[in-house]
Write a protein that binds this DNA or RNA. Structure first.
Lengths: 319, 319
DNA sequence: CCCATTAGGCAAGATTCGTTCCTAAAGAAA
DNA sequence: TTTCTTTAGGAACGAATCTTGCCTAATGGG
């Protein structure tokens, strides 16, 4: 029965949208007898999806959390929300899950109907910045295009703009996407140069269509993340800075986003805030947000900017 | 035919993880004959999932984008990534899809295995701030708990802290969650006061377990978003402020996140930046990030903080 | 030209399904 | 307590469906 499978999916979908359906309700929705619904529930259970049931007058069926995730049946709006959420997560809003988010995104975008993809693009989620990040933004489309090519072992052609600004056409076998610091990198085999290369994704402009499939070769190193970070000089920031703040550690920790740096107490009234920056000017301005007196250690280059800001604020205050 | 349905799901799952499977590969994975795989592919197609096939030596099956989204089959890591992404989206990182994200999140969390839920919580995504937002954070758990109660028409008991700080125990029929400004509100029928009430979600501390189901009553107004905004004085910020900046508009616009405010040119060298704030102290510090001289209009209360910052930066610079 | 691949008809036998009955048990409300 | 609603599940039967094996076509790449 093709109908049986489709009905099981619809049943799963109903149980996901709502909680507590009675057997007769489900039977009407699915256009079968209540006995068949009971059979179907039994089927779902034996597939590993825990359908809890409460008997009695206010009883009903509900889907619980099992050992593994059941197939998610999303409506259009929810699918858009998921895609948008994954895009921002892949952009580095939450550190540590960028690669996974990208994988899930590639999976979703592969099957996302076109009209939904347009809606997702319209929301332009990549314009949402992470504080302190004024690095180059990566286009979500580029990101998923490359991720899909990696997954499917499809050759990739793209224009690459190197740091001098010169563009070259590349033809590569893409293998892995790595998020490091605040950038995305592509590890690929360059077929012209016949060697492994690491490309910055924000400098890639893919050409369509993607090429034919290739048979994967062994990666140059077991731990690809390690491989990339050994070859790419990315600190999360260009320079580290330590700031002594004249306020309790707890107070500062509450003000500072977790990923912006670490806060360690010195004594009751003082703590050390360790962070980093690309640009000493913005770094200095950020320190104003701490809301307490501070002094900068080991980083003389910030000092002139502090003085500049002091003057600027004084001028703005009308002194 | 329990096996048939399970196999169809597994087939769908395989087609989602990868692109281009040959019939024999699939047959081995699914432990059936290639002929059955062909039947299954035919079945998926008649269910509306477009399985594209390319014939020939380099041929294979792949899942394309259809008219509607197929059931998503996520592995553990991907599920965590989706949950995290939805949480941040519900937190207002991307404006316009908060409610939908929350709905999708409720759907996902209902069936999310416990060990995954722990991982999601460990990532604590709600600590990621939007710049300029230091408003009260809402716990993602609270948010999804309430959303689930709304969806399932379950009574809710919670402690509510009003603006004076006094806590009362409430017993309500929850109906809708509304995101307005940068806050979440709950529209509910208060069973003790026998009237509609709007609660700020960041002041709610739910008590478990949730109560029995109730039969929904007609909402107090057609457009619930309208209803809430008419009754709740939410400006995006408490106070508006206009700042004259001595730099070209284009330069400032590039530095400022789009949602933080609007930038309008005055002349070649000057522009006006309109924004708002809850707290004049942090407002003043933000202005330091503009990277140019500025003066504040119409908002004298910011001035002392500017002076304070001037002194603070001067002290930090060692003057 | 050859090979690997998808496509699909047909038939046989086994399996499964949906339904109609029935009874049991459990919880909530009157 | 009684009654009503709800889930639970056994038995049986006819109908529908599935899996498999075997066959032939068609297609695209090397």
């Amino acid at each position: 029965m093709l109908e049986t499978s489709a009905r099981l999916l619809r049943l799963l979908s109903l149980l996901q949208t709502h909680r507590d359906w009675t057997g007769t309700e489900l039977a009407e929705r699915l256009d079968v007898t209540p006995r068949t619904v009971r059979n179907d529930v039994e089927r779902l259970r034996s597939l590993g999806y825990p359908v809890h049931a409460t008997r009695g007058a206010a009883g009903g069926y509900r889907l619980g959390a099992g050992a593994s995730l059941p197939p998610l049946l999303l409506d259009d709006e929810e699918a858009v929300a998921v895609a948008v959420g994954l895009r921002t997560a892949a952009g580095g809003t939450v550190s540590g899950i960028e690669e996974t988010s990208l994988r899930a995104l590639a999976k979703l975008e592969q099957v996302l109907p076109n009209h939904l993809r347009r809606r997702v693009n319209a929301l332009q989620t990549y314009t949402v910045p992470v504080p302190g990040q004024e690095g180059p933004r990566v286009d979500a489309d580029v990101l998923t295009t490359i991720a899909a090519a990696c997954r499917d072992h499809e050759r990739l052609r793209f224009d690459y703009r190197d740091h001098s600004g010169a563009a070259t056409l590349r033809n590569v076998e893409p293998y892995r996407m790595v998020h490091r610091g605040r950038r995305w990198y592509l590890v690929a085999w360059d077929t012209q140069r016949e060697d492994w290369r690491i490309f910055r994704v924000d400098r890639i402009a893919p050409r369509t269509p993607s090429g034919p499939r290739f048979t994967p070769r062994p990666l140059p190193e077991e731990d690809i993340a390690e491989y990339v970070s050994a070859r790419v000089s990315v600190a999360p920031w260009r320079t580290r800075v330590r700031v002594t703040v004249h306020a309790p550690a707890a107070e500062i920790a509450a003000r500072v986003p977790a990923f912006a740096g670490s806060v360690e107490p010195v004594d009751e009234e003082t703590c050390v805030f360790t962070t980093g920056y690309d640009n000493p000017e913005t770094m200095a301005a950020w320190l104003g947000l701490l809301g307490a007196d501070f002094s900068v250690q080991d980083t003389p280059e910030v000092i002139p900017h502090l003085r500049e800001l002091a003057d600027r604020f004084a001028r703005a205050a009308g002194d």
